[in-house]
Each structure stands twice: as structure tokens, then as C-alpha cells.
Simulated scan of single mutants.
Amino acid sequence: MRVLDRAGIPYSHYSYEHNGNEAVDGVTVAQRIGRPVEQVFKTLVTRGASRNFFVFVIPVAEELDLKAAAAAVGEKSVEMIHVAELCGVTGYIRGGCSPIGMKKHFRTVVDASAEAFDTIIFSAGKIGAQVELAPAALAELVNCTFAPLTKQNR
């Protein structure tokens, strides 16, 4: 949220009950904040065949299509990084990973379904906190692109 404040990007903030640093699945998060599950997104980090890291933002109830993800970033293949690597690579823990404010900027692609919404909701960088902002504002801030990324949208 500090990054959004500094950039002057309007957003809404949601918080939800959780048990310490225990990750809560995205569908439950949507229910706890009272928002449509299709509008709540999760942030996934992958490593490509080139050994570069890539970030994908998809609806919480969907599964990343690894072939579509690889094609979206021009890689031969991508694979999810191990959860033990997440904090070292991004600075975030599982369940609190946000496409905003990572340690380094990684190429980011958001599922094309986000463009159907005026705003989307995703992690604010810690478990128990979510932000809502326009997909175009996210694209401007992290220089992301949009592409079909889920098994359902392919």
C-alpha cells in the first residue's frame, strides 16, 4: 500500500481474519471480504527455461496453464518455484505474495479475465490484507501485460 500511496494510485483496502502466518486459500479470502470470487486474484511466481523468474496473476479459483504462461512470456516452458524459494526471490511469504513491491521487478502477466472488471483484488503483501484497484493502474505501475493464462480461459 505504501507503493500505491507513493504512486498516487487510488485503491481500496480489505482485511480479513486469519491464523497467524497461515495462508488462507483465495476462495476463502473472497468469501471473508465479501467480494465475487472471479474478481479476486492470486499471484504466482515461476521460473522459465531461461532461469528467469516470471509473475502471473490469475483468478483465485483457477489453475495456471503452464503452457499458456510460457507462451505469454516467450519461454519454452515455465514451472512454479518451490514455496521455500518464494521469500528469497520476492520478499513475500506464501499467501501474502503481491505483484506490487517485490524485491526485484519481474516480468508480470495478468490473466485477460481481469480486463472485464473495473477493479480487481489481490494480496496487499501480507496475509490478511488485500487491495482493490483498476487493472490499468496495476499495468501502469508494474508494466504488466494481459493474456489468457488459466486452463479455463484457454
Rank of each mutant, 00 (worst) to 15 (best):
I58Q: 01
L64E: 00
L44P: 04
L44K: 12
A49E: 11
K67D: 02
E38G: 09
A68T: 04
L66Q: 07
T43S: 10
A49P: 03
D65K: 11
R32N: 04
V27A: 12
V37S: 05
T46E: 09
A30P: 06
E62R: 15
K67C: 01
L44D: 01
P36M: 11
Q31A: 15
I33M: 05
E63Q: 15
V45F: 09
R32F: 13
A49Y: 14
F53Y: 15
T46A: 11
V57N: 02
R32W: 10
I58K: 04
A30I: 04
A69R: 08
F53Q: 11
Q39W: 13
A30Q: 09
T46L: 11
T46R: 11
A71I: 03
D65P: 01
F56C: 00
G34E: 12
G34M: 14
A61C: 05
A70Y: 06
T43Y: 03
P59T: 15
V29N: 03
F53P: 12
V60G: 03
Q31F: 15
R35C: 05
V27F: 14
L66S: 08
V73D: 04
R51L: 09
I58S: 05
A30R: 11
K42R: 14
T43I: 02
G34Y: 04
K42I: 00
S50M: 12
A69I: 00
A30N: 10
P36F: 13
K67S: 07
V29Q: 05
E38W: 07
R51D: 13
A61N: 09
F53M: 08
Q31G: 10
A69N: 02
T43N: 03
R47P: 00
I33T: 06
G48N: 10
V40Y: 04
S50R: 13
E62S: 14
Q39V: 04
L64P: 00
A71F: 06
I33H: 07
R47H: 02
A30D: 02
F56T: 03
F54H: 15
E62D: 12
A69Q: 01
Q31Y: 13
F41A: 08
R35K: 15
V45P: 04
T43L: 11
A61Q: 12
K67L: 03
V73I: 09
E38Q: 14
V40Q: 03
V27I: 15
T28D: 12
D65L: 02
A61S: 11
A70P: 07
I58Y: 10
E62Y: 15
V37I: 13
T46K: 08
V29M: 12
A30W: 02
A70I: 12
V37L: 09
V45D: 03
F54E: 06
V55H: 10
L66N: 09
A70L: 01
V73P: 01
T46D: 06
A68C: 05
A70T: 14
I58N: 03
F56E: 00
A72N: 04
A68W: 00
E38T: 07
V40W: 07
F41D: 01
R35Q: 13
V73Q: 08
A71Y: 07
R32M: 05
E38L: 14
V29D: 05
A70N: 07
G48K: 07
P59H: 14
A30T: 08
Q39D: 06
K42P: 08
K42T: 05
E38I: 04
